[in-house]
Design a protein around this nucleic acid. Structure first.
Lengths: 134, 134
DNA sequence: CAGAATCCGTGATGATACTG
DNA sequence: CAGTATCATCACGGATTCTG
């Protein structure tokens, strides 16, 4: 990058703008878990950003009923999704991505693109590293 | 897969650009842990992007020797940092952030800003949710 | 100084069974 | 269908000790 001849002022700006020590601890806590991003992502793909519980369950490969429930509860608590309960028989529950929840996906675009563009190199690095160790 | 009814073009574009199903699992795996981002961040702030082991240890509050070692090993394996060993007495080891490692910080800027701007609202949501539950 | 090795508690996750 | 309730597991991280 352009860090040649970096001044203290730049450094200070960098410190203030770049990374907040505490908040981004493990990337905001919840985002680091196994399913949250997947759930948000799936909801964002749905038209009107709503999906039923069972739909999510089917879409997200490998997730258990329990973990989907827990993940959705966490997202609801943070205000990332809204829960719509329809007291029918059988019951129907829809989860809707809020503006807040949609916003975080946008903020993740940069990281997502970066991963897409660099993941193969990372895998290559790992291969080399592991090979050298044996 | 059933795509019946939906605009496949939109959906397809969205799928390709938005989120890669697997790779971003819990955000690229390693990034979700407790210390990795902190370590990268600290290194990025250092001039010439190098710091000694002990320096990192002092800067990152709460990290143990063990976790710093493990985190650095992981980063080295991925090619995010380079390890420079100086066989002196006492030994000195410096860790240098690579271009790859620096790049991921940039890609995290968006998320970082978003968290900074929205974390208070999230906390408020949690407060409300928890209160309603009691 | 920069680690390696070991033990251990805890939280996150998984598997299974039951229910309104 | 959309959960809840239990139990089992397992990786992550912390604390401690030892060493070249």
């Amino acid at each position: 990058m352009d860090n040649s001849g970096q001044s203290k002022t730049d450094r200070q700006v960098k410190r203030d703008q770049a990374f907040l020590p505490q908040p981004a601890n493990g990337i905001c806590g919840r985002l680091g878990d196994k399913w949250t991003v997947q759930v948000i992502w799936r909801l964002s793909l749905a038209e009107d950003r709503k999906l039923r519980f069972s739909h999510l369950k089917r879409d997200i490969e490998g997730i258990t009923q329990r973990m989907l429930t827990l993940t959705l509860r966490g997202l609801e608590r943070d205000g990332f999704v809204r829960r719509h309960y329809f007291p029918e028989v059988p019951p129907r529950v829809e989860y809707e991505l809020t503006e807040l929840g949609a916003g975080i996906l946008v903020s993740l675009q940069g990281l997502n693109f970066w991963i897409r563009d660099n993941f193969s190199r990372i895998e290559e690095n790992r291969r080399i590293y592991d090979e050298a160790g044996e």
